[in-house]
Design a protein around this nucleic acid. Structure first.
Lengths: 204, 204
DNA sequence: CATTGATTTGACCAACTGGTCAAACTCACG
DNA sequence: CGTGAGTTTGACCAGTTGGTCAAATCAATG
């Protein structure tokens, strides 16, 4: 393993290649379904060479997961209490949908973990994510109480946004097969915007 | 392997125990993440004994999957063209949600497969499910055209129902952690009913 | 261009995995 | 209770897997 000085040019390149390859492999086979050899080949390295840069398969996975979680929660963080409620929510939906289109592997990597019981993520969810969700649920509740959007269970509202947007990445194989020629992401933005508008636009 | 006569008492019991155990194991570790030994132990058998009843790990998986798919598509099949549109859709949502609550392992088994690209399911999806979806999308489109429910992309409408209802089974680990003491299935039915009512109730 | 640290690799290992097999055991039935 | 079919198991095998290691190769610095 490299000394803990500043990373060399080669170290940078190879570590990046490994993480990129690992994202590909882990997201489409899950942790146990992936082999170090697979990742090494996808990164253009030999297995011992890969293990020169990361101490173990799990270390690669953890680094990937940590980086993912950070960017994953960003859109929710930027739900702005000062903004116009409905537009804020719609913007959040749009951003999440974009992430499903642009980073489907990240979404599937996350989905794989949660579906299998979140063994390696339980702590982060129970602390970091939980705090964030409590805060934003309060915000939504406030908007509902002041009548600026329709009432609905705030946490379930968040779940529904995650579910609807990530579905296009996580169930991509199914969605694409059933949509035929049509690109799912053509109609999805409008569909979701309509859905949340009709649901949340306050009835006077 | 048992001769192909009528199954004995022991055969019935053990095959059932194996399938039950396999559902448990496969749904929480995926196909590659599960071992025959795990399944055997969960079924209270030795590995060779299990392989006396099923020729291979894959055979167990296939039998499980086939049985699952049949019951999985039932609720959609019974979407009734003669019924009241909005009530039919709401009934479908309710049934799907109930299945998520009562058969979460089945849901996760299915999710595991699709997330990983549906390698063993692609054919069924492209044929059976596709036909069913086309048919029901037509039905929904007809209801929209006649103004009995609001317009929305019919296939995306179906996707959204699947996504929202199965989320409670597939992401159970996350949902339960974030809901704390509250049972997610307490508020979910009302939340989803409200959502689809507001979205689909026609505005004259 | 020499030397030293960084990088790469072939050979290897122990643990695990899906699956086989012959021998032993159990059960239902006459 | 004996017998043959149905059931169970310990021992085993070959392939895979995560990971190690010493030796070989490469790159940058003086």
């Amino acid at each position: 393993m490299p000394a803990d000085r500043a990373p060399t040019r080669i170290q940078k390149k190879n570590r990046a290649a490994i993480l990129e390859a690992a994202l590909d492999v882990f997201s489409s086979h899950g942790f146990r379904g992936s082999t170090v050899d697979q990742i090494a080949k996808a990164a253009g390295l030999s297995k011992p060479n890969l293990l020169y840069y990361f101490p173990s398969k799990e270390a690669i996975f953890n680094e990937l997961m940590t980086a993912l979680l950070d960017t994953w929660l960003d859109p929710l963080r930027s739900l702005d209490p000062e903004g116009e409620p409905l537009e804020e929510i719609l913007a959040y939906v749009r951003r999440k949908l974009q992430m499903s289109r642009d980073f489907p592997r990240e979404s599937r990597l996350y989905a794989n973990e949660i579906v299998q019981g979140a063994p390696r993520l339980h702590d982060v969810i129970a602390t970091d994510l939980n705090v964030l969700v409590e805060e934003k649920a309060q915000l939504l509740q406030g908007w509902m109480d002041s009548g600026r959007i329709n009432r609905a269970h705030p946490k379930h509202l968040l779940f529904s946004i995650w579910s609807l947007t990530q579905h296009y990445a996580d169930f991509d194989a199914q969605v694409r097969t059933l949509m035929g020629e049509e690109d799912p992401f053509d109609a999805a933005p409008e569909y979701l915007e309509t859905l949340y508008r009709r649901m949340l636009t306050p009835k006077p």
